[in-house]
Design a protein around this nucleic acid. Sequence first.
DNA 1: TTAAGATCCGACCGGTCGTGCTAATATCTC
DNA 2: GAGATATTAGCACGACCGGTCGGATCTTAA
Lengths: 207, 207
Amino acid sequence: MGKGARTRATILTAAVETACLGGFDGLNLKPLADRVGMTKSGLYAHFGSKEALQVATLEHAAELFQTRVVAPAKLEAAGLPRLDGVFGRWLDWPGNAGLPGNCPFFAGVVEFDDAQGPVRERLVRLFRDFRQVVEQLVASGVRHGHLRPGTDPGQFAHELLALRYAHHWAHGFMRDPQALVRTRNAFARLTGRAPPELAAAATRYRP
Amino acid sequence: MGKGARTRATILTAAVETACLGGFDGLNLKPLADRVGMTKSGLYAHFGSKEALQVATLEHAAELFQTRVVAPAKLEAAGLPRLDGVFGRWLDWPGNAGLPGNCPFFAGVVEFDDAQGPVRERLVRLFRDFRQVVEQLVASGVRHGHLRPGTDPGQFAHELLALRYAHHWAHGFMRDPQALVRTRNAFARLTGRAPPELAAAATRYRP
DNA sequence: TTAAGATCCGACCGGTCGTGCTAATATCTC
DNA sequence: GAGATATTAGCACGACCGGTCGGATCTTAA
């Protein structure tokens, strides 16, 4: 690995940490350059623009997510246990990758939802790919008899992401000490492992 | 209403719209002043700082939310129907208030989760208050026999917010045309009104 | 060893940011 | 209508933004 690739990696590592703390809009050149002991123009030798830096940072974070959250599933039993593992690691992310702050992808959702450009496109594709991973895990769970036949993987993935998002809000923002147990309860209900009497909230109301 | 109060209202209306489009970090003085035909210092006569402007904007948005989403529940039948109404209007917000873009509160969650200060505090209190409203609606639903006795209002509110957050992601960011139907499905499952065979996903798996 | 090329710095550009101040103007009260 | 007050414009400051450029310094391969 040449010197260029080495410093590029150093920059990207610091950039991902910065993005976890301040989002992709917080990826300002001067502070980032200071963090790695360089100058702004030094960064520009590696990335030609701020947008390119954002995309590269997103890519680097995605690789980290892949190795820390998704890949370990290969070592777990196929079907629902694998889904359990991914969801559990997803809840810890990005902390379990040694990163400070919160998930940068969720920050990107807010920062790029009205804007457009390559960063947004890349982020959408990232979410779509991960969603597909979840859907395959669900389908596998159905095949193994862990989940009810006919389970809609798209609907399941939608609700799974909802739980992760709510955890981000309750734990990260509201600092609710009950966040984790509530998210786990909801996950248990989603996967049909809640006590039967808690599986649904309503009793007799029909609109 | 004096002239001061009138222009202050004009500014805040424009500020809420701006916050819907670009969040509270996007509340920059010059563009906002241009939008209402004033200069930056004109705004400064009304709010003494950017932070105060953000707080006032948050307050104004909260009042709008109260009147457009929460208050109409008074006209609905107590219990679950009232919860249906609030959730339905919440999904439309802020569009049903004539505002462009997305919910500014969700943007604030990302922008102020690591930061601290009066804006964050106000936003936390806002969410806590609304969560309490939801919990009371749930408790009322239990009393009316619409929801299973013993339903945990806190857990229910946690999952309800999860659905709204997922809708924000799927509809607003991912532009998923199936977002609405999936959110409604999930709401039906949460309130126990999904077809029984869809109420839970798992069949026999026990970890 | 040496020269080509990669790498990085320092200075600088045009803009925009939030924040102050003064002066002039509009509005309200008496 | 006069005086007090509230409101707004105009202007300037320092800090920071993304981006550019020439040249110094270091790697690397011949």
